[in-house]
């Protein structure tokens, strides 16, 4: 967990310091110097447009984290709000919201994301919205389950008996006590979001060029798999390691916080 946290931290630092760390601009092309193997001038080689791969991998960290954060923001806020409302108020609120969630859950996430991108048009922002929307139902369900279990807890019952208002109960008892569960899920969601965005990129629906995004970089260089494999290994490894670090971190948090998600 410590090293997972370290990698996540490293990725964040790299993303923040990208302009200072990258030896070249991530979009500077050199068409007379394309798909070159690693060398002193280009430690990871150059890509199909003669751009420095190391610089692109570094800037890719930025893109991936932005995607992860945006998806998290969307899915977390909307999902938690829906889930809390449904779980807390129950009855027809619950019924209505959960039926809506059921409708969304009835689509496999990736198809839902594809449909949303088809509607909005491809692009980084729309990718975030698509992945965010498709991850929201999962959060809504989880938040609802958490609230349902918490509202039966004795201290909530006690607070209610003591005359605490609904909002006060939610704010002071339910929210703080669900943080650990949601935190674990949030960490895992970042991993899922980065991967899902890459998947959309693979289908031609991801970030727009010339932005460096690991998934799109992988996708764009897939025809080079046998002639210039470094084009795939660098972003592929970066993507995998980052996703893995978030997964590990979520896992570790789960153990540390003794969270049981059922």
């Amino acid at each position: 967990m410590a090293w997972a946290g370290g990698i996540v931290g490293l990725v964040i630092v790299v993303a923040l310091l990208a302009p200072w760390l990258a030896p070249y601009s991530p979009i500077a092309q050199n068409l007379r110097d394309v798909a070159q193997p690693p060398s002193v001038r280009h430690p990871l080689g150059t890509d199909q447009l003669g751009r420095d791969l190391l610089s692109r991998v570094i800037y890719g960290a930025r893109t991936s984290l932005v995607i992860g954060a945006a998806v998290l923001a969307i899915a977390f806020t909307v999902g938690t709000a829906i889930g809390f409302a449904a779980g807390w108020f129950g009855r027809w609120v619950d019924e209505t919201l959960m039926r809506a969630v059921d409708v969304l859950m009835a689509f496999p996430e990736i198809l839902l994301a594809i449909a949303v991108v088809a509607a909005l048009g491809p692009g980084l922002a729309n990718t975030m919205v698509a992945v965010g929307v498709s991850s929201t139902p999962r959060f809504a369900r989880l938040a609802r389950a958490v609230v349902l279990s918490l509202r039966e807890e004795t201290y909530v019952e006690a607070a209610r008996a003591a005359g605490a208002g609904e909002w006060r109960l939610l704010r002071h008892h339910v929210l703080p006590n669900s943080v650990s569960v949601l935190l674990v899920q949030a960490t895992l969601l970042v991993a899922i979001a980065i991967q899902a965005a890459a998947g959309l990129g693979f289908l031609g629906l991801g970030a727009q060029p010339p932005r460096a995004e690991w998934g799109v970089m992988l996708v764009d260089s897939r025809t080079y798999i046998s002639t210039a494999p470094w084009l795939l290994t660098a972003p592929g490894l970066a993507l995998m390691v980052t996703v893995m670090a978030f997964n590990f971190l979520g896992d570790g948090l789960q153990d540390v916080l003794a969270v049981r998600i059922s």
Binding site: V219, M240, F248
Partner: peptide, 22 residues
């Protein structure tokens, strides 16, 4: 196991194809 969960599926597919088929 965690690496497996974190592996982009299309990357894995292409790598397997390259090694075992090509």
């Amino acid at each position: 196991a965690l690496a497996g969960v974190s592996m982009p599926i299309f990357w894995l597919g292409l790598l397997l194809m390259l090694v075992f088929a090509v």
